[in-house]
Simulated assay, not measured.
Amino acid sequence: MRTGRKLLHRLAVVAAAASTAVALGGTAPASAVPPDHLPLHVTNNSGRGEQIHLYVLGVNLATGRLGYVDAGGTFTAWSGGTLPPSPAPDVAISGPAGGATTTLQIPRGLSGRVYMSFGEKLKFFLSPDGLVQPAPWASGDPNHGILFDWSEFTYNDDGLWLNSSQVDMFSVPHSVGVTGADGGSSTAGELVAGGRDGIFDALAGQPGDWGRLIHTRADGTRLRVLSPHKGIDTAVFGDTYLDGYIAQAWDTYRDTTLTVVPFQHEPDTRFHGRTDGAGVLRFTDGSGAEVASFQRPTTKDVFGCDGRLHAPNDHVVGPIARTLCAALHRSTLGFAHTQPTYDPAGFYTRDVTDHYSRVVHEHMVDGRAYGFAFDDVGGFESLVHNGSPVSARIDLTAF
């Protein structure tokens, strides 16, 4: 199970979306402070008959405390955790019936998740350091047999960032949207018609371990497909799958220079990488000073965008690491020598690639998804943002 500390780290990454988006050339925050509470409309167009349960969980950005939010927008910090973890209070909010909408209130100053489950309530637990959230990729997790998913958000003085997420798994098709004070609206994460079945079928038919990432319930319901990172964690996906490609990419830059231009709005900010005799990819800045170095990562490092590709929240090492990780997922590193690349027609074109992310993107209406942690490199993530939001929405679409 994922501990409260790990969840806090993940939500801190989400909370950093504001500064990251601006640094990478995204929309600058509006000057007006958004409302204290933002209405979030959850609409059920799933076509399924089960009762839907909603949860708003996250971290208070002012205090760092993990907690939950009720339907009216009141935040309450978790308390009373034990070892071993004890059951958390039932904080489920009754969700909408078919064709109906339930409106939640999201307090400003919160970064977190909106969970939605079908039929059964989710089981959460508390440890001394906070929440133990569902980890359905683990067979022993009490939520393993429940159909559920989540979206992630940050709502602060600079506005709302809201995204669907397939970083850990894909399960419930849903889109996210936001409407601004000027009446403008944006949507992301919408699947093409039949997209859910299309994703499952494509991965089931992909040679190798990809079909083993699918979880099917005893009643025949296909619950979810895991990301390859979670597949490695649960020993259903090979942990050397990318090793040959990674070695080829690293060796390419023994004789060729890799140029990383991490900020689209700063084309003159460039870092130049060459692989040395010890197999370390070293980057220099415009003055020739070394600013970052990366040992050759493992398959798990790449699929998790962590380990030897850990990206600190700075303006040099982190952006380079993010760029490398995205290029390896998209199988462009070693072939395109200036990164990142921005033409999706060149992504996932090799036999050895992240077929999970490829398939998810192929089944999105706008081609955007969060197939891995740094899918926002180049702006290919299923994210909406508005600096002056007046409402947000999550639409559960048909499946």
Rank of each mutant, 00 (worst) to 15 (best):
residue 385 H to M: 01
residue 14 V to R: 11
residue 341 T to D: 05
residue 219 D to K: 05
residue 388 S to I: 00
residue 252 T to S: 13
residue 185 S to Q: 13
residue 67 G to R: 08
residue 36 D to S: 14
residue 228 P to S: 03
residue 146 I to H: 12
residue 192 V to P: 01
residue 2 R to V: 15
residue 317 V to C: 00
residue 47 G to H: 03
residue 13 V to M: 09
residue 289 A to E: 13
residue 398 A to R: 14
residue 34 P to V: 03
residue 175 S to I: 01
residue 60 N to T: 04
residue 311 A to F: 06
residue 175 S to T: 13
residue 282 R to I: 13
residue 273 G to Y: 12
residue 299 T to P: 10
residue 121 K to L: 03
residue 266 E to F: 10
residue 153 F to N: 04
residue 290 E to V: 11
residue 385 H to R: 12
residue 204 A to N: 11
residue 289 A to G: 03
residue 129 D to L: 12
residue 84 P to H: 08
residue 119 G to V: 04
residue 73 G to H: 06
residue 192 V to L: 15
residue 6 K to P: 00
residue 334 G to P: 04
residue 367 G to N: 08
residue 29 P to V: 09
residue 306 D to N: 15
residue 197 D to T: 13
residue 91 V to C: 00
residue 67 G to A: 04
residue 157 D to Q: 13
residue 294 F to L: 10
residue 12 A to K: 11
residue 10 R to Q: 14
residue 249 A to N: 07
residue 381 E to H: 07
residue 81 G to P: 07
residue 128 P to G: 08
residue 185 S to G: 02
residue 346 G to C: 02
residue 264 Q to L: 14
residue 115 Y to W: 14
residue 188 A to E: 14
residue 131 L to A: 12
residue 326 A to V: 09
residue 61 L to V: 01
residue 191 L to H: 11
residue 259 T to A: 00
residue 179 T to Y: 02
residue 2 R to I: 15
residue 108 R to I: 07
residue 153 F to Q: 08
residue 204 A to E: 13
residue 150 W to C: 07
residue 255 D to Y: 07
residue 108 R to Y: 08
residue 180 G to H: 02
residue 125 F to P: 00
residue 197 D to Y: 11
residue 168 D to H: 00
residue 85 P to H: 10
residue 339 Q to D: 03
residue 386 N to R: 14
residue 221 T to I: 12
residue 50 E to D: 15
residue 230 K to P: 00
residue 329 H to W: 09
residue 173 P to N: 02
residue 181 A to L: 10
residue 254 R to I: 04
residue 315 H to K: 14
residue 157 D to V: 11
residue 389 P to Y: 05
residue 24 L to D: 14
residue 326 A to R: 06
residue 284 T to H: 03
residue 315 H to T: 15
residue 222 R to S: 06
residue 75 F to W: 05
residue 30 A to C: 12
residue 26 G to I: 07
residue 257 T to H: 00
residue 269 T to Q: 11
residue 207 P to A: 10
residue 177 G to F: 08
residue 219 D to W: 08
residue 76 T to L: 02
residue 360 V to Y: 02
residue 281 L to A: 06
residue 389 P to R: 07
residue 287 S to F: 02
residue 325 C to H: 01
